[in-house]
């Protein structure tokens, strides 16, 4: 027995070293490397010159860029709120189902589109919104319009695409927090004369706070870094941070500036995460 324990101790390293190596080398170092690159000068043909500079961060405040950055934040906040408003009733509805198998089926139906390809879910909207797309064809055949409506390649299309893709992200955390609420609290509130609306506002909503925060976080952060949806559904007016980042790395070849832009996304991630942790701790007290 004792001998085996010693063997185990040696084994411990053998079990841990591969994954520690992997995550440090192929995740941690690359992410830090990118953050460091933000403080270097750009090289002549892509890459960097190893001179410390803050020029990439001042470039962010350039007229051309800060507006796009600001707009990206507005779009991301709007998308998080829209998803919350639209997702909450769905999560609430699923949690009130009494039949467990209906509940499970509905949850699977929420998760399914989320497990299909992001690119394809976005492309599907091109098929619907295009000038020869389904919506315009139907409206035309019903003689409601004479000329196709410009739906695709607009800010509206981008906001719709973001909403469509991220809605399932918020339903799951909302569901799990609403589901945990003790159902007797609803009865108690009703017995004490609370109307349904009052019960909702004073019982359901406050008790599902953690789900609301997690859900908003799960929508806000990826929306901030999004570039596929504006790239596919948006026009030149719907550029977001992610699109500039992509251009800096693939066409403009200003890697340090691209890194500085990613810095903003990481910084927002950090702030939102610490805010979430503080709120969670505060609520736990």
């Amino acid at each position: 027995m004792l001998n085996y324990r010693i063997t185990y101790k040696k084994l411990k390293n053998a079990f841990l070293i591969p994954s520690v190596f992997w995550i440090v080398t192929f995740f941690l170092i690359p992410v830090f490397l990118m953050l460091i690159y933000a403080f270097f000068e750009r090289g002549d043909y892509g890459g960097v010159k190893y001179n410390f500079t803050l020029i990439n961060f001042t470039l962010i405040f350039d007229d051309l860029y800060y507006k796009i950055i600001l707009k990206t934040f507005v779009v991301a906040i709007l998308n998080s709120l829209l998803c919350l408003l639209a997702g909450y009733p769905i999560a609430y509805f699923i949690s009130t189902q009494k039949n467990q198998s209906i509940k499970n089926t509905l949850l699977v139906l929420v998760i399914l589109p989320f497990l299909t390809n992001f690119l394809i879910r976005t492309y599907a909207w091109m098929v619907l919104l295009g000038n020869e797309g389904l919506i315009n064809t139907i409206l035309f055949n019903l003689k409601i319009i004479d000329n196709p409506l410009q739906l695709l390649f607009t800010p509206f299309a981008v906001q719709l695409g973001l909403f469509y893709n991220y809605l399932p992200f918020i339903i799951l955390p909302l569901y799990s927090s609403i589901e945990k609420i003790n159902k007797n609290l609803y009865l108690a509130s009703n017995d004490l004369g609370g109307s349904n609306l009052k019960t909702f506002l004073n019982v359901t909503l406050p008790l599902s706070k953690s789900g609301i925060f997690t859900g908003l976080f799960l929508v806000f952060i990826p929306t901030l870094g999004e570039f596929i949806i504006p790239d596919i559904l948006g026009g030149s007016k719907s550029v977001m941070i992610g699109n500039i980042v992509k251009d800096q790395f693939l066409t403009a070849r200003n890697w340090p500036f691209g890194s500085a832009l990613v810095f903003i996304i990481m910084f927002a991630l950090l702030i939102v995460m610490s805010a979430k942790n503080i709120i969670t701790k505060y609520n736990a007290k």
Partner: peptide, 19 residues
């Protein structure tokens, strides 16, 4: 171990490209 899940894909992709 959980960071790769919450980090936006664009950050992982570009970090690795630079690396």
């Amino acid at each position: 171990l959980q960071y790769p899940i919450i980090t936006p894909d664009i950050v992982i992709g570009i970090g690795l490209l630079i690396f």
